[in-house]
C-alpha cells in the first residue's frame, strides 16, 4: 500500500546529534573531571591545603590499596561494602514490593485510597532519618532495625508513586479495556499495572537513593560493619584519607544502583513517552 511506510525507530534525542558535534558531551564531562583532578593535585601537593584538610590523590590511592589488602577494623573493604549493600537491598526490596502493591491497589480502589491517604500524607513529609532513633528503640542496634528502617523508607516513596500512577491511568486506556470486555483482574494486571510502570520507576529511583542514604546514616549509630561505620570510625581517628575513600565509594555505589534501575526501566518501559 501507498501510505503505510513504517515510522523509523527514532534514536533517543541527543544521541545522533551528539556524534556530529565537535565537542560531544562525554568529552566535555571528561575534561571537566580531569580539570578537577588537576586542581586537586596542584592544591594538595604545593601545600596550599595541608593533609589534615584535604589528602593528596596519591595518598588516597595508596590508602585505598592498603584498605583492599588489609581491610578496616576487622573486615575487608569488600565486607563493609556488601554489608551496607545487603542491608539496603533487602530493606529496599521488602519495602518497595509492599509499597508498590499497596499503592497500586489504593490507586485502583477508591475506598482503600480514601482510607490510606490521611496516614500517607502525614508520614510522607517526615524525613526517614527521623525514624532512626525509633527503629533503635523498637528493634535495637541489630540488623532488623536497619532493614526495617530502610523498608519503611522505600515503602513511603514507592507507595505514593504507585498510587498516583494507578490513579492517573488515561481514561482512554480504561475505556478501551472496558469495551474489549476485559475482566477487572485482567484490567488491573494488563492495563493499570503497565500504565503505572513509569510512575513506579520514578518512586523506585527515589526510594533506592534514599535507602542508600539512610543505610549510611543508620550505620553511623551502632554498627560494627558497613560504609557508614567505616567513615564514622575513620573520622574519629582523624584518618582523613579513609573518610574520603568511604565517601567516594558511597557516591560511586549510589550512582551504580541508580544506573542499574535505569537500565531495568529502559527495558521494561521501552515505550515510555511514546504512548
Amino acid at each position: 500500500m501507498v501510505v503505510t511506510n513504517v515510522v523509523k525507530q527514532q534514536a533517543p534525542v541527543g544521541v545522533d546529534a551528539e556524534t556530529s558535534k565537535p565537542f560531544p558531551s562525554v568529552a566535555i564531562s571528561l575534561i571537566s573531571l580531569g580539570a578537577i583532578m588537576a586542581v586537586w593535585f596542584v592544591v594538595t601537593n604545593t601545600g596550599i591545603l595541608g593533609p589534615k584538610q584535604l589528602p593528596t590523590p596519591q595518598a588516597l590511592v595508596s590508602r585505598f590499596l592498603e584498605l583492599i589488602k588489609d581491610g578496616y577494623q576487622g573486615s575487608s573493604l569488600m565486607g563493609h561494602i556488601t554489608t551496607s549493600l545487603t542491608r539496603t537491598l533487602s530493606g529496599f526490596v521488602i519495602g518497595s514490593v509492599v509499597g508498590i502493591v499497596v499503592g497500586l491497589v489504593a490507586g485502583y480502589n477508591r475506598v482503600i485510597s480514601a482510607a490510606l491517604s490521611p496516614i500517607m500524607s502525614f508520614i510522607r513529609p517526615i524525613p526517614p532519618i527521623a525514624f532512626i532513633p525509633m527503629a533503635v528503640l523498637y528493634f535495637g542496634l541489630g540488623e532488623t532495625g536497619k532493614v526495617i528502617l530502610i523498608a519503611v523508607t522505600s515503602f513511603n516513596y514507592t507507595v505514593v508513586n504507585a498510587q498516583s500512577g494507578a490513579a492517573g491511568v488515561p481514561i482512554a486506556y480504561r475505556r478501551a479495556a472496558a469495551t474489549l470486555g476485559v475482566s477487572k483482574t485482567q484490567e488491573f494486571f494488563k492495563v493499570i499495572v503497565p500504565a503505572a510502570l513509569p510512575s513506579i520507576f520514578t518512586g523506585l529511583k527515589t526510594a533506592l537513593a534514599l535507602s542508600w542514604a539512610v543505610v549510611v546514616a543508620a550505620e553511623l549509630v551502632g554498627a560494627q560493619k558497613g560504609l557508614g561505620f567505616l567513615i564514622n570510625q575513620a573520622a574519629l581517628f582523624f584518618d582523613i584519607p579513609t573518610v574520603f575513600i568511604g565517601i567516594i565509594l558511597i557516591g560511586i555505589i549510589g550512582l551504580l544502583l541508580n544506573l542499574a534501575l535505569s537500565l531495568l526501566e529502559k527495558k521494561l518501559v521501552h515505550w515510555r513517552g511514546r504512548g
Binding site: 478501551a176 503497565p194 510502570l197
Partner: peptide, 13 residues
C-alpha cells in the same frame, strides 16, 4: 459495541 477512538487508545506496552 466496539469503539475506535481518535487516537492514543492502543496499549503502548
Amino acid at each position: 459495541r466496539a469503539v475506535v477512538f481518535q487516537q492514543a487508545a492502543l496499549f503502548p506496552w
